[in-house]
Write a protein that binds this DNA or RNA. Structure first.
Lengths: 217, 217
DNA sequence: CACTTGACAGCACAAGTGTTTGCTTGCTAT
DNA sequence: ATAGCAAGCAAACACTTGTGCTGTCAAGTG
């Protein structure tokens, strides 16, 4: 007898057992867990069926690794996630350059949850977050306390919202970037504000703004 | 040296390593994984620190079980539900009153993922999202295309950012709310803009703004 | 009938892995 | 000084667990 997925009854039971075991314990079962709880006579039978499940793409296995049976993320109801974490590297204030993400221990940094609506996971590479202090970014429609998401890059296309450092002023600002011949126009997002015109060598792009989160709770 | 959590540097590193290992592999690390990758001289040192982490409630352990180190669900960024879905009920444009959430079939509405950093789950009750069309909310630092999160309510405290309908003008606007005697002051979030003064009966509060999401991808 | 194949059994081995024991080090309080 | 203690080190030990045989058995298959 077969299930709809082309699995034998036993394989189906094993698959569900693996799911439930992980949901209950938080780690994966060993072959002998499956064996005893499902009252299978031999570990080799379990191994045999696990191999079948693996070939059918229902599970992943890491050879030789204890409890290395895993479910593909997309099939794992416990792990499937709709958001992604990016490191919160610090605070951005007018005048201070952005921290270099490579200088900071990303592993120990605070994390910010970013919904995948805002950005798909693969686009979140090299993205980090900064908390905004002060009102200096208000012409970019960014308030005190907002969290901005930045992707590290040193070039920009016209119209991109970038974190740009003005060398002369020693200030960082968030503006829309427009290259106009030898000059650069930095246009505030807020149309009631005036743009900045300056030369290329006075501008150093530190990253592109890819999102803003504001909590008013 | 200690981290903010009262963990030693080594314990902090181990904790983050466990997180990353699980995120990467889908199963938990063995003591020897931790040892070799963190270049710790002995397994017993790892065991020693794991015990400390366990006593501090940072990890759970199943004695004797291979790869039985787990993170409490609330601390596990991979498993913990760190975001929540709220219905996206439509579009807000200057002049149009907000849709009544009860009039819309919430079940079939589009959903927006909201990170719990922005709002804890229990506070997300009666919260819904609207997409902003046009620049009419620019003085509330909200751009065309932003998504605003609103909690349905008809009263407000001073200083709350609210969605207020001005009856005479038949317009909806997002402003900070201040009751001043019999009059009401609606103050833009953007200090370069001017407030609106009006009477109480000309203002109908439609909800409180609890968050803003902006994606620039 | 001989031959294959899928599924299961039993068992033992070796690798994977947690635990224990004894020893060293550096620091602090008595 | 000396005792106490947290933290680390090294090696051995013992349990846990995946894997590799060797068979059995029933159901095809030519």
């Amino acid at each position: 007898m077969r299930t709809a997925d082309g699995l034998s009854v036993r394989q189906d039971k094993i698959l569900h057992y693996i799911e439930e075991f992980f949901a209950k314990h938080g780690y994966w079962p060993a072959i002998r867990d499956i064996q005893t709880d499902l009252k299978i006579s031999s570990t080799s039978v379990v191994a045999y069926n696990l191999k079948a499940l693996q070939e059918k793409g229902k599970i992943n296995r890491q050879g030789k690794v204890s409890r290395g049976i895993t479910l593909p993320k997309s099939l794992n109801p416990v792990v499937a996630s709709t958001s992604h974490q990016v490191p919160l590297l610090g605070t951005i204030t007018a005048g201070q350059p952005l921290p270099d993400p490579e200088q900071v221990d990303i592993g120990s940094a605070e994390k910010v949850e970013v919904p995948l609506d805002l950005a798909t996971a693969d686009k979140l590479k090299d993205v980090y977050a900064l908390r905004v202090r002060g009102l200096s970014m208000i012409d970019a429609l960014i308030d005190d306390g907002d969290i901005v998401l930045l992707r590290r890059q040193e070039t920009a296309n016209n119209g991109d919202m970038v974190a740009a450092m003005l060398v002369d002023e020693n200030a960082v600002t968030l503006k829309k970037f427009y290259q106009e011949g030898l000059h650069i126009r930095l246009q505030p997002a807020n149309s009631t504000m005036q743009p900045i015109f300056t030369t290329s060598d006075n501008v150093r792009i530190q990253g592109r703004v890819v999102g803003v989160l504001r909590s008013l709770f």
